[in-house]
Design a protein around this nucleic acid. Structure first.
Lengths: 84, 84, 84, 84
DNA sequence: CACTGGAAAATGCCGC
DNA sequence: GCGGCATTTTCCAGTG
């Protein structure tokens, strides 16, 4: 009998999910490390990492906000059309 | 002997901290409930709560962003003065 | 003509709701900050904040359970009295 | 004159760092989304996502511990060989 | 009543 | 080792 038939637990499927996620998390970690490296490089080029981070976070917020406003507009439009 | 002398554990002080926090959390919960009530009232007046929430969250983001930019400006100023 | 009559949009009422909610959220934030302060104070008095939080959450659990049991008791009582 | 010579601010270099980081953060986000997708898929296959996450975090813990032990072993080995 | 999205809390991580 | 910051996890109301 196979493992699954024996235990009733689809171990192979779980293992497959686990491995896929572990692999993705590794990739994610690699990128996080890359980001750290870039900050380190910027620092060694004389930039203030704290300021750089703040700047990037503000740029990100700008983008988020534009997205949010689009969402709000969509909501308005839907509400309006819903009342027709 | 007092409890503390007996056990070596400053129970009174812990208790005091616990009670202060519990009291604050109750107040916080009261306010959360008040907020829910206001949304409920708005809804009963015909407003779309989802839109209202989104609107308020955008207004909050605007404020956060302004604050962040001030923070960035402060950082710039400090960095600049630091180099004098 | 009033703004509302002009635009057909009840801006004053929205604004009022928005402001009420913003005000409440500020109060809520103040209290959250107070809580953080108390934890900070406890920490500076030598307590382990993580453990303190666990303790408080357990006490809250207990309270919820007791409340539930009271609710249950009420239900039983009502059911019992309803059958008299 | 170049922008940098004009303003005294090395804008091109900053911009380059900002863009590199933004690009990496986008990649990171893509992977995070992929991970979410996999969890979603697992869920739709009947798995309990919360438990799956716990499992993966425990496996990661184990791996860290094993890594630490390897590091420790390396230290011992080096110390031992250093004394030869 | 399960699912989704969003708020709050907890945890972990990084640089100083 | 600590404080601040990002991420993760948990919780909860609303929705279909």
């Amino acid at each position: 009998m196979s493992e699954e038939e024996t235990t009733g637990i689809p171990g192979g499927e779980i293992r497959s999910f686990v491995e896929r996620i572990q692999r993705l998390e590794e990739e994610k970690k690699t990128i996080s490390d890359d980001i750290k490296d870039v900050y380190g490089e910027a620092k060694s080029r004389g930039f203030d990492v704290k300021i750089l981070k703040k700047l990037i976070s503000i740029l990100k917020q700008d983008k988020n906000e534009r997205d949010e406003q689009e969402t709000l507009l969509d909501l308005y439009l839907n509400a309006y059309q819903g009342e027709q």
